[in-house]
Design a protein around this nucleic acid. Structure first.
Lengths: 231, 231
DNA sequence: CGAATAGTGTCTCTAAGACAATATCGT
DNA sequence: ACGATATTGTCTTAGAGACACTATTCG
């Protein structure tokens, strides 16, 4: 219960932050936006974007605000991931952090302070545009752990949620092959196109979650693909 | 990220509490332990047990500590549910609450301040030993919402997790019909015994998560049932 | 035509659910 | 023997995965 104000010692009031995991899919790869820390601790390390909770906003609002401040992204799908509260997770002082998935079709950012990283299988990150591959373990604070939890959550929820639709390039105009690329990026394994079609028809099209626009997408050297939009 | 200590205004430091959802199964019914509030706000209302986080403990440790203080239960399966952070969820001042499922074979408690409630379908609670049925909406704070989230989570995770084993009377000595009662209590719907047996054999016994003890349980008027223990 | 991709069809295997059949109990 | 429950078996149907097949486009 959230009562019992009067106790022996004054009540502990920790700092509360939100950590954001901004994901997108590009070139068939799942990518996450990280920011470079410019102060101690973990100065120079890459970290999840985020910030402290303000007194009048919910955690989800804080996540949305920080995401917009740092990337300009406003239309992301926000979803609470987990709350991390180990006492030593921040070496300076106690900080409770509420982590949020932020799934968007595209993430923009300031090149000096932030960068997109490809998620590689086996706890590796590869920086966009080169550089040495990074281990999850190299991230600041416990952010490597948080990232692992996030990836497992996305994989687990992929088929019985609509998170893939939040990551597709344009929810109002996409093809099933595009959607398949989102699935493959999250699972980091290829899917059989025929079986994927059958399943998407049953799980999305027949229930009316996505509908064909009647138009088609064409790419050189490929057959045209039907366009759909999410409802 | 969990940095940026220096900002314009002093950093907001909310109270952080844990709310605990202590569940057990008894007489084929899912039951939750609630406590009666003895002070404002919501004085006289039933609420989830819980309390404020101390400076040196993680949220899970706080949940375990509070559960033990209020019920004496030590062996519960604790699992983070969700973090509730709406600014107005506590009318006095801002309180962030991290909710935990606490699944135990049996819950003891102090009869004056606490009581077990049966979960009924359709957002109703029935107090052990009589009294008017209670709507989830009558609980203090947002605890009715939290309870709904908890029930959905338990139902969703039932088949692909081991939460049922945490609720069975004795993890070292139980029968499959007993386990079926746990499943039925959580789902609040009856299951076909034959199909349940086949599934448990495949999902628990064959993978070795539970093993037959070789002994049998007998009840008058019934056929003996094989005993199992969780590994 | 041939390569690549979109989309459909077929086959096998496993799982779920409905339900029958059998095996043990207590009375 | 009868009623209740434990446990096994049978049948049907749906979904997953492997894979063949057709259709469309570009060169």
């Amino acid at each position: 219960m959230t009562q019992e104000k009067q106790e022996a010692s004054p009540l502990f009031r920790p700092l509360v932050s939100v950590d954001i995991l901004p994901f997108m899919v590009e070139e068939k790869k799942l990518k996450i936006l990280l920011v470079k820390r410019n102060r101690s601790p973990f100065e120079g390390s890459w970290a999840l974007p985020g910030g402290f909770l303000l007194s009048a906003e919910s955690a989800e609002e804080a996540a949305g605000r920080k995401l917009k401040e740092e990337t300009g992204v406003e239309n992301a799908h926000l979803e609470q991931l987990y709350t991390f509260s180990a006492p030593e997770r921040d070496p300076r002082e106690r900080v409770i952090s509420i982590a949020y998935l932020a799934l968007a079709p595209k993430l923009s950012f300031d090149a000096k302070e932030a960068s997109l990283f490809q998620i590689q299988p086996e706890d590796r990150l590869e920086k966009e545009g080169g550089g040495l591959p990074l281990s999850f373990h190299d991230l600041a604070f416990d952010h490597g752990d948080i990232l692992r939890v996030a990836l497992m959550r996305m994989q687990g929820k992929l088929y019985y949620s609509d998170i893939a639709l939040s990551l597709v390039g344009d929810r109002a105009r996409f093809t099933l092959p595009e959607l398949q690329e989102v699935y493959e990026a999250i699972l980091s394994s290829p899917l059989d196109a025929g079986n994927f079609y059958r399943r998407m028809k049953r799980d999305y099209v027949t229930p009316g979650k996505i509908v064909p626009t009647g138009e088609f997408q064409k790419y050189p050297g490929k057959k045209r693909a039907a366009l759909y939009r999410a409802t």
